[in-house]
């Protein structure tokens, strides 16, 4: 019995270590704010509907405590795929959104649900795959060329298939040549989040298009390498949008405005630019210069 317990305990510890590996290394570098007394705002809860990548990469858990400490607001983050993230806001269940799918964002604003689309940071999608690189995409000029090689070699490729921002970016790169998942067995449409898709690609030795931040923060548990990065068709822009209180009821406009102002301000910019340097030796997100 004791032996069994010991085995179980060490297994649990091992698992929790693995889980810790997925953290973007944020917690150690949270800046100390020296505000002695912060007045709690009248409506202190801000509901933020966002894409999984900014949360799972550890960026929001790294940024938001600083904002909360300085202002007294409490930010409730609801991470989901971009589609669901926007739908939740349309249904009136969020005060602001932080997503990365330009076309959907523009529709959101045009339909009157959002006040204004504010692009504030970007990074690059990367194509990852096994080190063997069976389709030989390593020297491709851009993602479109790499995808064409993958299709020609019929090498396994894991697609998000969930209409998320990353999936939409992938479809844009395929253009008119989107493989049909029914007939092309090498094209695996997983319909899951980024982390699950990367795990699947790793298991199957498949290629995958991913945002760099999520990949780097999961890298240790994956049998994958970055094979192609920074092609001109691989830019990934994140925007914040305040939900429109004229169209939706119960919106914490003040809170949303405060958070957007802070995210696009100097303090957050400095933090974002530093994020990831300590752990990965490179920044994961870049600021959009005005």
């Amino acid at each position: 019995m004791k032996k069994l317990l010991a085995v179980l305990l060490s297994l649990a510890m091992l698992l929790s270590f693995a889980a810790c590996g997925g953290n973007g290394g944020g917690e150690t570098t949270v800046a100390e704010t020296t505000v002695s007394e912060v007045k709690t705002p009248e409506n202190p809860t801000i509901r933020m509907s966002t894409t999984t990548s900014v949360n799972d990469s550890g960026l929001l858990p790294y940024l938001l405590p600083v904002f909360e400490k300085a202002t007294g607001y409490k930010v409730e983050v609801q991470p989901a795929g971009t589609g669901a993230a926007i739908q939740k806001a349309v249904d009136g269940n969020a005060d602001l959104i932080l997503v990365h799918s330009k076309a959907s964002e523009e529709t959101f604003v045009q339909d009157g649900y959002g006040v204004e689309r504010i692009p504030f940071m970007y990074n690059y999608f990367v194509v990852v795959g096994s080190a063997e690189d069976p389709a030989g995409i390593k020297d491709s000029a851009n993602a479109a060329e790499a995808f064409a090689k993958i299709e020609k070699a019929e090498a396994k490729f894991v697609s998000r298939g969930d209409e998320s921002g990353t999936h939409k970016a992938e479809l844009k790169i395929w253009g008119e040549n989107v493989p049909d998942a029914e007939t092309a067995s090498w094209y695996i449409s997983a319909g899951q989040g980024m982390g699950a898709c990367l795990t699947m690609a790793s298991e199957q030795g498949a290629y995958c298009l991913t945002d760099k931040a999520t990949f780097l923060s999961n890298k240790d548990s994956l049998d994958l390498e970055i094979l192609l990065s920074e092609g001109e068709d691989m830019k990934n822009t994140y925007s914040v949008i305040e939900c429109n209180s004229e169209k939706l009821s119960g919106i914490n406009t003040e809170g949303a405005k405060a958070l957007i102002q802070w995210l696009t301000g100097d303090e957050a910019s400095a933090l974002i630019a530093e994020y990831g340097k300590e752990q990965y030796g490179q920044a994961l997100f870049y600021l959009i210069e005005e």
Partner: peptide, 28 residues
């Protein structure tokens, strides 16, 4: 089933994982 099956279209997608996917897409 979503964890071990992977919710792969035309292969391991079942009703529950399809529902989960549509929810994630925002098609409530």
């Amino acid at each position: 089933v979503s964890l071990v099956g992977g919710n792969i279209q035309w292969k391991t997608r079942v009703m529950t994982t399809a529902i989960m996917l549509e929810t994630n897409k925002g098609n409530f």
